[in-house]
Design a protein around this nucleic acid. Structure first.
Lengths: 235, 235
DNA sequence: ATTTTTATATACCCATCGGTCGTTTTATGC
DNA sequence: GCATAAAACGACCGATGGGTATATAAAAAT
């Protein structure tokens, strides 16, 4: 378990913090067994507060930037003190890291689900673009952090993120490759094609506003159309 | 002159700094007249060092983030001390602000030049996209700062940037509108179309690497094609 | 040569902020 | 109720970093 915690935070833990870390695992995905009912209750409660803190921290980080936000700010945004935040997280870095992990898992899940359906490339890609664009809009704050704050991670953490990102891109590149081989997609270096397509979607984190005139689904539709047929094309 | 300096830095100036500020105007665009030869020489020399500092600061900011870079770092990157940096700039904020101003002027210039030619919408838009994409690739660092560090500016500075940005987008939106009215561009809300198109280009600041396999011009070409005709379209 | 400007360096101040510690309050189990 | 664990608090520490004050070196002007 300490191993898991270590992988997550990428830092050595003190006695106190390693004890506190038990909670993360339950909030995570593995080893829910062999916990006493009591410990389990505690873990659930802690996981709840942790999510609350993460959500609030993400909002602040997205708005002002990681460095500009103090632990006091995070606490105060929930009417907690700094100590409370440190009770649930070992460091500021860990908060950021948890945010990074959450966001990538969401993206990955969406795409692998679509790929698993085994659709023809054109349909698969259209769905992927829609889904990706929607994800960006629905989780603007987290996405902003993901793209802006990478330099705040440790070397190891950056490597792990890069690995995951490569996996994600690769999945989409395979779809593009298949479509190109089938003669339905424009011939071009897949890396550039996919980076370009995702780029338009990712950019939504900059300009999409929730209280805008159009609903997210419709915007995602426009993007998908534009990417598929171009601004000159009819479709 | 003090007025100009004030507008630039958005901060009240001390006696010493207002004196130093003379140099900025010469490095800027207005009122080169009525300077003694001596003052002019000084100004030119200072402008040179300022540009050097700005370039180095921009590199560091892009790499590590504005807050993570200290004035010492900026100085040390040029083998100066902190004092030298403070001799040429009144504050860290002013360095950032100068970077913001430089980058926008570059972008604006490129597009207004194209628009001035009075080309038909399809050709104009294709050129604008190419130019914009190229600008992003050629000034990756500056662009990264522009999109990441806006929250570090003061309220007034942000407003001014927003104003300039709106002007830029509007120029392109007009081109799109014209193309749509002429029936050659896809029917869709112009704001979404232009944000989408620029989005793909802007994203280049994330993934374009100078030592990559393809030259910037070629990548810009791929993007322009992809946007014009889509991944399904032939062109 | 000496005086004034220009340019660079050193030392320092002080507010901020991440993180720790010891204590106190609140819940939980018996 | 009371003992124990969980949760929260408030005070503090040490380092960092923006910014300043002051001294000094180098260049120019006289």
């Amino acid at each position: 378990m300490s191993a898991t915690a270590k992988r997550y935070s990428g830092q050595k833990l003190t006695r106190r913090s390693s004890q506190r870390h038990k909670a993360y695992e339950v909030s995570g995905q593995e080893s829910p067994l062999k916990l006493s009912p009591r410990a389990e209750l505690k873990a659930r409660k802690q996981a709840y507060v942790q999510e609350e803190i993460l959500a609030s921290a993400a909002r602040l980080f997205a708005e002002r930037g990681y460095r500009a936000v103090t632990i006091d700010d995070i606490g105060a945004s929930l009417e907690y003190t700094k100590s409370v935040v440190y009770y649930y997280f070992t460091s500021k870095n860990e908060i950021l890291w948890q945010i990074f992990q959450r966001i990538y898992d969401t993206y990955l899940e969406g795409v692998s689900e679509i790929r698993a359906r085994g659709l023809p490339p054109a349909e698969a890609l259209a769905l992927i673009i829609r889904k990706h664009a929607l994800n960006v809009m629905e989780r603007r704050d987290w996405t902003a952090i993901y793209f802006r704050e990478e330099s705040e991670l440790t070397e190891q953490q950056r490597r792990e993120i890069a690995r995951k990102k490569r996996g994600y891109d690769l999945m989409i590149e395979e779809v593009y490759e298949a479509g190109m081989n089938a003669g339905v997609f424009r011939q071009m270096p897949v890396h550039i094609a996919v980076s370009g397509l995702l780029g338009m979607c990712n950019w939504l984190y900059i300009w999409y506003k929730e209280q805008g005139a159009l609903p997210a689904e419709q915007i995602a539709g426009y993007c998908a159309d534009l990417l598929a047929n171009g601004y000159l094309g009819q479709g």
